[in-house]
Design a protein around this nucleic acid. Structure first.
Length: 296
DNA sequence: CCTTGAACCTGGGCGC
DNA sequence: TGCGCCCAGGTTCAAG
């Protein structure tokens, strides 16, 4: 599922019931996801208040009212579902809202926020996701976070940033954009989409869009703009629901309807005037979808 | 430093 | 209906 737009969509849904909530109970239904849960995971969460829910790259970070941060990653198939259990007097709807796929409900947070109970359920069929908890002051040096690159949201990703990151790089653009140490949060879908929008071939070597003196170029600017626009529009759309991605209320994202190239092998290139056909190639062991005619 | 391939795991789709 | 194969949004590690 989840690249930056999906994770950000999930973050926004979870923040509504998690920020300011007390964790009355945390329940793990097996000993591990991708990795074992940290020692005494449930015990360390019990009674804590979540002060803020943020995102870095594809990670969700729940700040607790002590020294700890709860780290959550959705892997390929993770999703969160929020069930409103209501108040003591007016029980909520969760008894008829439970997901069908309870076999893969691996973690349940029982939350109390401003007098309302909520269940936050983590479901992950493939279990490539994980949760961890570390002291907040170790976050910056944690190897998962220390080397993360620029966020493609906000204003920092511009042509000059692309030029600085890509100067001298021999890797193809596809690989460079997937490299979380350069730009953080892009995945297979949005890299394909951004390259199409920028009119750049995924096979072109990253260093070749930078000017000889290492400064920005039209191609750098176009790429920076394309990435930011694709990511922003995907977040607005609630992300892309191919298989597992759900908003926290159970509804589907709809950016998949806006794909120009991803999973559209054999279809005509949607660029006005372009007579190309979308091709699928394999780079770094993953599918790349592109138009060989207008992406150069 | 680079790239590639495999591994982790379940399930959906397809051809037969 | 079933079986085998390929594929899938991510990350990490080993090997060349």
């Amino acid at each position: 599922m989840p690249e930056l737009p999906e994770v950000e969509t999930v973050r926004r849904g979870l923040a509504k019931v998690m920020e300011g909530a007390v964790i009355e109970r945390a329940e793990t239904r097996r000993g591990d996801l991708r990795f074992p849960f940290p020692a005494n995971f449930a015990g360390r969460l019990k009674g804590r208040t979540i002060t803020a829910l943020s995102r870095r790259a594809k990670y969700l970070l729940a700040d607790l009212d002590n020294h700890d941060v709860l780290i959550m990653h959705l892997g390929m198939s993770g999703s969160f579902r929020v069930l409103d259990e209501g108040t003591e007097e007016t029980p909520g709807s969760f008894h008829h809202e439970r997901s069908k796929d309870e076999a893969h409900d691996h973690v349940v947070f029982h939350l109390m926020q401003r007098g309302r109970h909520h269940l936050v359920i983590y479901n992950d069929p493939r279990r490539f996701g994980f949760m961890d908890m570390i002291a907040r002051d170790r976050l910056a040096d944690d190897k998962r976070f220390a080397n993360l690159g620029l966020e493609p949201t906000g204003n920092s990703l511009d042509g000059a940033a692309i030029a600085r990151l890509f100067a001298g790089k021999a890797a193809p653009l596809k690989a460079a954009l997937l490299d979380q140490r350069l730009i953080a949060g892009l995945g297979n879908i949005y890299v394909c989409e951004a390259l199409w929008q920028a009119g750049l071939s995924p096979k072109r070597l990253a260093g070749t869009i930078v000017k000889a003196d290492g400064s920005s170029s039209e191609r750098c600017k176009k790429l920076a703009h394309a990435i930011r626009e694709v990511i922003a529009r995907a977040i607005e759309a609630g992300g892309s629901s191919l298989r597992d991605h759900r908003l926290t209320d159970g509804s589907l994202g709809y950016f998949q309807h806006s794909f120009k190239v991803y999973d559209r092998e054999g279809e005509p290139c949607p660029r006005p005037g372009c007579k190309g056909t979308i091709r699928r190639i394999v780079q770094s062991g993953r599918s790349t979808f592109h138009c060989p005619v207008c992406q150069r």
